[in-house]
């Protein structure tokens, strides 16, 4: 049952190319998925601002439109306000933990350098080893990069907090029991019977096409994330044949083969949305002109719009918080590796320092 431990060993050039390829792939996936998500957020924003689909369902003028009731249920199911409040409360701890690891690492370098300098002052040119300051430049540069990243993360945390404070009340309202939610929505006398009018049917058809489009995006996202391809064979063959490895060209052509079609489908779904939303805007204008507009109806519509966008913000805030939590946890792992690098080099320098010190004191 012999397993060759060296089976997966590849030349350094191939190993590094695999790393860079996986980074390119991750960036491609993030761009495609990010584009679709942003476009969907835009669509939800436009619909919420037009009070759609609620306006089409809001016949009696005093019961909760079906889409709003569904949105309320989904927020409660996703954990409601408590779940995001808890994640928001955790952010500062995650940030502090990362900062501490980084600060400790850099402090190790500083302390060792201070001692190195003191001994250099004491022994002058007899202290003939490379100054620690020079040796630690790359690590300190890396540390500086981590500091910038943490500063950007702090800004991202603030964006999430601002979004939460802007929509928190309305999200809380969505989480209230149905009767309280209903009581909080101003009622208006029943909408004129617009049911039969053609514009309502056009709007309904457009909205269902938009729903279809959004569902298709979920499928595309799933397919994109399911794509796997082992580049090692390609890299090994290229290295063997030409003796040199053009990672960029090999990776880009492979990534195009794997994701080119998806890129087309993503661009297509963006265009589809633009067309559909254009038609929605036109039909909505006609719909609003038919609908009676009085203060009660307008007040009711304003609250329904806020409730719809509160749901969308809840979904966005939750996604931001998941992303933030993952970011901090991933960064912790990377910072621990950085800390190890710092402690390894400091340990080596200390050992070397003590030997040099012993030697100098003896001679």
């Amino acid at each position: 049952k012999f397993t060759d431990l060296f089976e997966k060993m590849v030349p350094m050039a191939v190993q590094q190319s695999m790393s860079i390829y996986s980074q390119r792939k991750a960036e491609t996936v993030n761009r495609l998925v990010g584009t679709m998500r942003e476009t969907t957020n835009l669509c939800n924003g436009v619909l919420a601002s037009l009070n759609l689909p609620a306006a089409l369902e809001d016949l009696s003028g005093d019961s909760i439109p079906q889409s709003i009731a569904e949105k309320a249920r989904s927020v409660v199911q996703l954990g409601g306000l408590q779940s995001i409040e808890q994640l928001i409360k955790d952010l500062p701890e995650l940030l502090t933990r990362n900062r501490e690891i980084l600060d400790e690492s850099l402090k190790m370098l500083d302390n060792e350098e201070t001692t190195d300098n003191e001994l250099r002052t004491k022994f002058n040119q007899r202290w003939n080893r490379t100054p620690s300051g020079d040796l630690y430049k790359p690590l300190r540069a890396e540390g500086g990069n981590f500091r910038d990243i943490l500063d950007k993360a702090v800004q991202a945390d603030q964006v999430v907090r601002d979004r939460y404070s802007a929509h928190g009340d309305m999200i809380a309202l969505l989480c209230r029991p149905e009767d309280e939610l209903n009581a909080a929505i101003p009622s208006a006398n029943p909408t004129k019977t617009l049911q039969g009018s053609e514009v309502v049917n056009v709007l309904r058809s457009l909205l269902s096409q938009l729903d279809e489009m959004k569902k298709e995006r979920e499928t595309i996202e799933g397919e994109i994330k399911a794509v796997t391809f082992d580049m090692s064979a390609t890299f090994l063959m290229a290295l063997a044949q030409d003796g040199v490895l053009n990672e960029e060209q090999l990776s880009l052509s492979q990534l195009d083969q794997l994701y080119g079609a998806y890129n087309q489908r993503v661009q297509a779904t963006v265009r589809t949305q633009e067309e559909l939303l254009g038609q929605v805007q036109t039909s909505h204008q006609e719909f609003s002109s038919l609908k009676q507009s009085n203060t009660e109806a307008n007040q009711r519509e304003e609250v329904l719009k806020k409730l719809a966008s509160a749901h969308d913000s809840y979904v966005e805030i939750s996604s931001n918080l998941r992303e933030g939590t993952k970011f901090y946890n991933d960064l912790t792992e990377i910072l621990l590796k950085f800390q190890n690098k710092c402690s390894d080099i400091v340990f080596a320098r200390k050992t070397e320092r003590e030997e040099l010190l012993k030697y100098l004191q003896q001679s």
């Binding site: 790393s19 960036e27 990243i149 991202a156 931001n320 933030g324």
Partner: peptide, 16 residues
């Protein structure tokens, strides 16, 4: 995405 990407930090660099 809202938070910085860590992708390029995951590329393990060899210390010379």
């Amino acid at each position: 995405s809202l938070y910085p990407s860590l992708e390029d930090l995951k590329v393990d660099k060899v210390i010379r």
